[in-house]
Amino acid sequence: MSADVEALICELRRQHPQHGARRIAHELDRRSPGSAPSRATVHRVLSCNGLIRRQEQRHPRKYRRWQREAPMHLWQLDLVGGVPLADGRSCKLVTGIDDHSRFVVIASVVAVPSGRAVCSASSPAAWNSTFVFGAPTTIASTSPAPAEDSTAQKPSPNSTH
C-alpha cells in the first residue's frame, strides 16, 4: 500500500474519530471504486498509527469448567462406534476417562454393542484400573443404553419378584 493511502486513512480518522475501519474503507471505496484497501488493512493501518484503542467486549465470554476438581471423582464411560472391520461389520469401542485428569482408565473393543458385551469388556478393565488407581466416586455414561442383549433371559409376564 502506498504511503499516500496510509496518510489518507489516518487523515480520515483524525477528521472523523467516530469512524471505524469499516466506515473508512467504505469512504475510500466511494472515492476510488475498486482500488480501496480492505477493512482489515484499514484497521491494521489505524492500529499501527495508534489511532485505535482496544475496547472491552460487549458480551465477554464466560467459560465454565466442565471437569471435576480432583482426580477419581468421576469416570466418564462412552460407547464409540463405527470402526469398520475387514469383513464389512463394524465394532464399537468402550472408553472410560477420568474427568479431571483426562486419563484413559478403560479402553476395550466389542463386536456387538449389547449390554452383556459392554459389561464383559469394561468390567476387567474397570477392575484393573480400580485396583491400581482406586475406585471413583461416580461413574457416568453419556451414551444411550446399548441394544438389548438377545441372549439374556427375559422374565415372563406371569412371574412375580
Rank of each mutant, 00 (worst) to 15 (best):
R89H: 13
N158R: 02
S47V: 14
R31S: 08
Q57K: 14
I24H: 06
L93C: 12
C119L: 15
T160W: 08
A36K: 05
R89I: 03
G34S: 02
C10N: 11
R68N: 12
R68M: 08
A121F: 00
H73N: 13
R23H: 03
H161K: 12
S122G: 08
S108R: 15
R58G: 03
W75C: 09
A117R: 10
A145K: 07
P136T: 11
N158E: 06
T95F: 00
M72N: 14
D4F: 05
R30E: 11
S108K: 14
R14W: 04
V132R: 15
A21P: 07
D99E: 03
R23C: 10
P144C: 06
P71Y: 05
A135V: 01
D4Q: 11
P136K: 03
P157N: 07
S108G: 14
Q57L: 14
C10I: 10
V42Y: 02
I139Y: 07
H73Q: 15
V94E: 01
D4W: 05
V105D: 07
M1Q: 09
R23N: 03
Q55I: 08
A36D: 00
P136I: 11
R13C: 01
P144V: 03
K92L: 08
C91G: 10
Q15P: 00
V45P: 04
S150D: 06
R13W: 06
L74E: 10
S38K: 01
V109S: 07
H73A: 15
T95L: 06
F103L: 14
E56H: 09
L46F: 00
R22S: 02
I24R: 07
A152T: 03
S2D: 08
I106G: 05
S156C: 04
A140Q: 03
L46Q: 00
S114K: 02
